[in-house]
Design a protein around this nucleic acid. Structure first.
Lengths: 196, 196
DNA sequence: GTCTATATTCGGATAGAC
DNA sequence: GTCTATCCGAATATAGAC
């Protein structure tokens, strides 16, 4: 296969996934038909089935791609040789920026009830990015940066505020861009859990 | 209409709503058919349409009932003549207990993408119970109990941790009953926002 | 690999008896 | 108010030409 042909195939896949993200989040997965997808992406129904096998297949490809991206970002931050506090803050900053720049993608990760159309995927709390975030917090406790409390309580306390504010923004209930709130959010989160 | 007849009608409605809550949350709204509802509730398809008009009607009745309940609980707490801190703590305790005792109901309130099947309802962040919770926090700032920061940041910081932990529990990713974490959650939340 | 036209299933909603 | 039997539109998926 030539490089050009490969690009054209990538293009069909990408156009389909982009249309899927847009429509799934605007109207919901079940309110979006393959026909809608086909029209929006400018790709025929046959091609969609050729590449993804089923409607579920489209959703799965989208899900795994986005989760993989987020996981990679968290892993990258986790590898930095800095304090747990700085790592957690960087993750929070990344989440806010990501949500602001690609709201639909963030919405798909956070709000979509994947269980409803991707029963084989784990619930969001058990997905890799969120497992990694808890891991950061666990190390913070080990290092004595964070008080010695239940790791789940600590992790949800650190990131819960930011995630709720992101949800508000994605719901259209918040007018200010998320990154502007980073400092205030981080101060609240870290004061809550920091070791004395 | 006799009191007895009235009770029988209530019973059909209640059985339907109970079945709906169970099935909508177990399989999702779109994966549940009216037939499923009818069988589970022991009520005929015709009766369901007689009482609720449509499948959406069932979801709407469920939604408004549960939101009304939660709103009443928050209002009750808001009326108590105590500090904002105590009010917020009481709301947090209520949320944890509610999620533990009626997980499906809490799941429906928190996780269901109502927008997908109830487009006319406001997004969750703008629903009455959550508006009232922000109001509690706003008063806390006015009274000087909470630092003078953006009210949305303060509100999400106060309740975000608890809501994420509830989500974990509802996802089956947390083994311990939620109310056991109240003290730890509250300490984190309040330390984060409390005025010096 | 891409497309159009088509088949088949399924589920929301209704009619009308009791 | 409750029920059963039935309609009908819609949407996933496929067949088969190019």
């Amino acid at each position: 296969m030539t490089a050009l042909a490969h690009d054209r195939i990538q293009d069909t896949r990408d156009r389909t996934l982009e249309a899927a993200l847009e429509l799934f989040m605007a109207r919901g997965y079940f309110n979006t038909t393959i026909q809608d997808l086909s029209e929006r992406a400018g790709v025929s129904v046959g091609s969609i089935y050729h590449h993804f096998g089923s409607k579920t297949g489209v959703a799965r490809a989208l899900y795994q791609g986005l989760m993989g991206e987020l996981e990679a970002a968290v892993d990258d931050i986790a590898a930095r040789p800095v304090s747990s506090a700085e790592q957690c803050r960087a993750v929070m900053a990344h989440l806010l920026a990501f949500a602001e720049q690609r709201p639909r993608a963030m919405q798909f990760i956070l709000e979509a009830r994947h269980q409803e159309f991707l029963p084989e995927e784990p619930p969001m709390c058990s997905s890799q990015p969120f497992v990694r975030m808890r891991e950061l917090v666990r190390r913070g406790i080990e290092r004595g940066e964070i008080r010695d409390i239940d790791v789940n309580v600590a992790a949800t306390s650190v990131f819960g505020g930011a995630l709720r504010l992101i949800a508000m923004r994605l719901d259209g209930a918040l007018d200010t861009p998320l990154p502007e709130h980073l400092d205030a959010l981080w101060t609240c989160a870290w004061r809550g859990v920091a070791a004395p």
